[in-house]
Computed example of a mutant assay.
Amino acid sequence: MTVVMCLTAALFVLAILWKIYQLTQAPHDRALRAVTACLVCTAGSFSTGFPPEKRALDAALGTGTASLLSNVLLLAAVYSLLTFFLHSAADRHRATRRARLEAVPLALTAIVITVATVTAPPGVRGRPYAQADLHTPQIAVFFVAAQLYLVYALATTARWTARYARMSQKPSATGLWITAGSLAGMAAANALRVVMDLTGWFGNGSAPAGLSHSVALLFALAVPAFVVGLSYPGLAMRLAGFRIWRQHRRTYQRLRPLWDLLHDAFPQDALGRTPGGKWREAFRMRGVHRSYYRRVIECRDGLVRVSPYLAQLGVQDGATPQAVAEHLRAALCAQAAGTPATTEALAVALPGEDSIDADARQLVAVAEALVKTA
């Protein structure tokens, strides 16, 4: 467990450092401030679970201090999450005013659980939730107050997240709806915990086992869903970007037969450095899009240059890729021999729509037809 906690702490440190760096680039971004505060508070709450820190806090400031600080920081983290979605879904003035109002229940809850901790008997302070003596009023008030705030803050955040989701487009909307559902699930889990606390406080026995199982199930579903919801838009965009990257790389490679011919004939039309070998092209990760656009443009320029010679061989304006491929080598030979062109440039292998990807598909058809006619 210590190894897992250390790894988690390291991840928190890296995430916080990254957010601090982003804040230095955008110091007035209130949503980014809220995310950074949420991470800092969550990391602080987590760190109080380390036995050395917990013992040091309890020894220096009294038994139960570590538990109190952990819960106050957790409440602050949820408040920061709430303000993040406020700043994301509302205009700046309204979000700022609402964030100040939302600080009031946070402050009141922090005061209540602090008073409950201070006035509780030392022997029952600071116990984990599963071992808490809920028959002691101060302990019951501590957990009920903290969880009531969590229910309120999480439910409010879920509502604002759903509102932001309705304003967004996919894939952001999908991730936000998942996040909203997970927050609602966590709010429901904490609401059931309030019922369990009240049962333990006023009842003679423990809470029904069904309640405990329901809470565990809700948290088991909601927490991973929350992570998935936050990660989904970025992952979806990365996946879409990878698909485009793969498509451009494949098209770049498929154009090589056509590009080789045209580049040998018109080397002056090259827009950049001559590509390396096939293995290098296959595994190069950077600059794929730039290489793709350059190759498409160079192939199209080459066809425009050789089109008068294609016309002399009987190729008509608007000819198909197959017709171009059948006469391209002969046209390039005529051009290389210095035969004068008696016609103007033709529009050949034209795409049906005005886009570079559609143009690339026509050029690929020429390249594939060239391979077949070799």
Rank of each mutant, 00 (worst) to 15 (best):
V315C: 08
Q316F: 08
A334I: 04
D359Q: 05
R295M: 13
D301M: 02
R246S: 01
C333F: 15
A341V: 12
P340Y: 14
D260F: 08
Q322W: 10
R273Q: 13
E326Q: 15
L261C: 03
F266K: 14
A349E: 13
A358R: 07
L346N: 06
A337N: 10
D317A: 11
L363R: 01
C299V: 04
A365G: 00
Y292S: 03
E326P: 02
P340R: 08
T251I: 08
T343K: 11
Y293W: 08
V315F: 07
Q316I: 14
A365I: 01
V324K: 04
K372M: 12
L262P: 00
G272D: 09
V348K: 06
S307A: 04
L346K: 05
A311R: 04
W279S: 12
Q362R: 14
I297H: 00
W259R: 06
L262A: 03
Q253Y: 11
L262C: 01
V296R: 00
D357M: 15
V364A: 01
R246F: 02
P267Q: 15
R246A: 01
L258K: 00
A325V: 04
Q322Y: 10
D264A: 14
A311P: 14
G287T: 11
I356E: 13
L332S: 04
A358D: 09
S307V: 04
T339Q: 12
S291N: 07
V288F: 07
Q362W: 13
V324A: 02
D260C: 10
Y293Q: 14
E326T: 06
Y293P: 02
Y309S: 08
L271H: 09
P257T: 10
E298C: 01
W259C: 12
